[in-house]
Computed example of a mutant assay.
Amino acid sequence: MPLPPPDPFLRLKARGAATNAAGRFEPYERQAENDGWDLPEEERLLRTQVSLEHPRSVINRVGSPDLPFDRTLNPYRGCEHGCAYCFARPTHAFLGLSAGLDFETRLVARPDAARMLERELARRAYRPATLAIGTNTDPYQPVEARYRIMRAVLQTLSDWNHPVAIVTKGTLIERDIDILAPMAARGLAQTGVSITTLDAGLSRRLEPRAPPPARRLATIERLARAGIPVRVMVAPVIPAITEPEMERILAAARDHGATAAAWILLRLPLEVAPLFRDWLSRHEPGRAAHVMNRLREMRGGADYDADWGRRMRGEGPHADLIARRFALACRRLGLHAPVPPLRTDLFAPPPRAGDQLTLF
Rank of each mutant, 00 (worst) to 15 (best):
C86I: 12
C86K: 14
C86P: 13
F87N: 05
F87Q: 13
F87P: 07
F87A: 14
A88W: 08
A88L: 09
A88N: 09
R89E: 08
R89W: 11
R89D: 06
R89Y: 12
P90G: 00
T91Q: 13
H92E: 07
A93P: 06
F94Q: 04
F94E: 09
L95C: 11
L95W: 10
G96T: 02
L97V: 02
S98W: 01
S98T: 04
S98E: 03
S98N: 01
A99Q: 04
A99L: 01
A99W: 02
A99D: 02
G100C: 08
D102V: 09
D102W: 05
D102Q: 04
F103T: 13
F103P: 01
E104V: 00
E104F: 02
T105M: 02
T105N: 12
R106T: 07
R106N: 07
R106I: 03
L107Y: 03
L107N: 10
V108S: 10
V108N: 03
V108L: 14
A109K: 12
A109S: 11
A109G: 05
A109I: 12
R110P: 03
R110G: 01
P111R: 02
P111E: 12
D112K: 07
D112P: 02
D112G: 04
D112W: 10
A113N: 07
A113L: 06
A113P: 10
A113R: 07
A113Y: 04
A114R: 09
A114D: 11
A114C: 10
R115Y: 01
R115M: 03
R115A: 05
L117T: 06
E118Q: 15
E118H: 08
R119T: 00
R119M: 01
R119G: 00
R119S: 00
E120L: 04
L121D: 03
L121S: 04
A122F: 06
R123T: 05
R123V: 01
R123C: 00
R124C: 01
R124F: 03
R124M: 02
A125K: 13
Y126D: 04
Y126R: 03
Y126P: 00
Y126C: 02
P128A: 08
P128R: 02
P128T: 05
A129S: 15
A129G: 15
T130E: 15
T130F: 13
L131M: 04
L131W: 06
I133W: 11
I133C: 12
G134V: 03
T135R: 05
T135M: 11
N136P: 01
N136Q: 05
T137Q: 13
T137I: 13
T137D: 15
T137V: 11
Y140R: 10
Y140K: 11
